[in-house]
Simulated scan of single mutants.
Amino acid sequence: MNQNRFWKQAFSFVLLLLVYGVYQFGNKQAELKQPGEYDDLLSLQQAVSAQRSKVWFNETQFTVYKLLADDTKGSRHQRFLVKREGLPTLLVAHNIDLAPRAPLRPGQSLYIKGRYEWNQKGGVLHWTHHDPRGVQPGGWLRLGEEKYQ
């Protein structure tokens, strides 16, 4: 009976060490992440496939596909197309009356945080700026360490 108890305690101890090691490894991985390494691709994919709008997404990496002319009707918006594997080509409408213009070029990688609106062409990413009323969380465009919000 003592030998059976010994093995149960040894097994419990090894299991405890294993759980602790996994916990510590997970914490180290979280500490190593840099800004922008969290990617919200799944939220966007779900919104596109469900044809949902008003979907806020966390900072997600894209590649600038094409620069478009600014939209100057009403609030001015810097417009460009972005691509990301697993998503259709998306239009970005970045309000340059509320946030600085981002110096973009095709092929450039950037991170976007904002709101997705579905349309038949794939969708629009907007609210890539702070909320001047402080009601919404707001978003941004990020190139390297520089945020345009």
Rank of each mutant, 00 (worst) to 15 (best):
Q149N: 01
L125T: 00
H129V: 11
T63S: 06
Q149P: 07
H129W: 14
M1S: 10
Q24G: 10
Q120P: 01
K83R: 13
L90S: 05
T60M: 12
T63F: 03
P132L: 12
P88H: 06
T60F: 15
Q149E: 14
R101F: 01
W127C: 04
D97G: 08
V55Y: 04
R142F: 08
L141H: 05
L143F: 04
Q51S: 14
L104M: 00
G21A: 12
E31L: 14
V22W: 01
T72E: 10
G107H: 13
L16H: 11
A99F: 03
D97L: 01
G86W: 00
E117K: 06
N119D: 15
Q46W: 11
H94W: 07
W7H: 09
V92T: 02
Q51D: 07
S109P: 00
F80E: 08
L16W: 02
P88I: 06
R76Y: 09
P100D: 13
F25E: 02
A47F: 11
K28V: 10
G36H: 04
G134E: 12
S12T: 15
F57R: 02
K54A: 04
P35L: 12
R142M: 08
E117Q: 09
K8C: 15
H126E: 06
G26C: 10
E37K: 02
R79D: 03
K54L: 12
R84P: 05
K54P: 02
F25R: 09
P137W: 07
Y148P: 00
G36N: 14
Q120H: 10
A93L: 01
A69L: 15
V55I: 13
P106F: 03
A30C: 01
Q136H: 14
Y65A: 07
K73N: 11
L110F: 09
V14N: 04
D39C: 01
S12P: 03
A102T: 09
Q78T: 01
V124C: 05
H130W: 06
E117G: 07
E117N: 15
Y148N: 02
D71K: 09
E59W: 06
W127H: 13
T63A: 00
D97V: 08
K121E: 12
V92W: 00
A10G: 00
K8M: 11
P103R: 08
R76C: 00
K73T: 04
L81P: 07
G114I: 05
E37D: 15
G114Q: 01
V55M: 03
V92G: 01
G138V: 10
H126W: 14
G107V: 02
